[in-house]
């Protein structure tokens, strides 16, 4: 395979009779930051969830780091992988959710340590050290023993980012990471993401933060109605959109 981090070819996805993705073609090179923009219902979150097989695709091919996600190909046929193999593939892909989804019965550091201990069986001392470093990196070094309920939304989201990073993923998916936050808390989360981008992490970010896209993204992808309408560097897409739909969307959010 090529050395693309993500390679989507004609990805289709339906929920019952409703076709949500109508043939998505999409490539991300390692180290790239891609922002997915588009009106709600355009399929961008669904597409993101297909990348780590939280949603099964109905047609097309989706590769992460050269391997099919969720399936193995035999001749012309695709066979869904066993649950264990799907889980294994997911360890390479970190995901951050709109509503954080921290585990409320575990402390901040417990949240971060859980998967490396349980899934990868890494030594506890090492994991604790890494978790402590990650917490410090997201600016929450003093919140290790706080439960999610005791943290603000922005702090919870930063713990969630640290939790995903603890698995040392090759790729990070962000599903509207700041949409559920109070406006004054958005900045801290975006700052952490900006830091992460500067370390060379491959990131795909579904977002409404045009400023972030303009500043951090290498590529901006505009989706509408289940298809990619246009993509390119932010200077092109955001400053001089060519399609009417992109123009209409940007005029509303800018």
């Amino acid at each position: 395979m090529t050395n693309l981090m993500v390679d989507a070819q004609q990805v289709h996805k339906s929920f019952g009779p409703v076709q949500v993705l109508k043939g998505i073609d999409f490539q991300v090179a390692p180290g790239q930051v891609v922002c997915l923009l588009g009106p709600s219902g355009s399929g961008k979150s669904t597409f993101l969830r297909c990348i780590n097989h939280l949603e099964k695709i109905n047609a097309g091919r989706l590769f992460v780091d050269g391997e099919l996600v969720g399936y193995r190909q035999q001749g012309d046929k695709l066979h869904e992988l066993s649950e264990k193999d799907v889980a294994k593939k997911r360890t390479e892909i970190g995901m951050v959710f709109q509503h954080f989804n921290l585990f409320p019965h575990m402390t901040a550091i417990g949240n971060i340590m859980e998967a490396p201990l349980l899934v990868k069986n890494e030594p506890k001392v090492e994991v604790r050290q890494r978790a402590t470093e990650l917490l410090a990196k997201v600016g929450l070094g003093d919140k290790a023993s706080a439960y999610p309920r005791q943290l603000s939304g922005g702090q919870q989201q930063r713990v969630a980012i640290a939790r995903a990073l603890a698995m040392r993923p090759k790729l990070m998916l962000f599903d509207e990471p700041t949409s559920a936050l109070d406006p004054e808390l958005v900045g801290d989360v975006l700052a952490v993401m900006k830091d992460l981008a500067s370390t060379g992490m491959t990131m795909i970010v579904v977002t409404h933060e045009i400023g972030f896209a303009r500043e951090v993204a290498d590529t901006v992808v505009f989706m509408d109605g289940g298809v990619v309408v246009e993509q390119g560097p932010p200077s092109e897409i955001i400053a001089n959109p060519r399609h009417e739909r992109t123009k209409a969307f940007l005029s509303q959010v800018l």
Binding site: K84, R90, I93, F97, E114, L118, V119, A164
Partner: peptide
């Protein structure tokens, strides 16, 4: 449901998710 999703996204299997994330809650 977001709890199982987050657990699966971290690479936990269904059994691990049930035992460590869902049942304790």
């Amino acid at each position: 449901e977001g709890q199982s999703e987050a657990a699966h996204a971290l690479g936990m299997t269904k059994t691990q998710t049930m035992r460590r994330i869902v049942l304790p809650q």
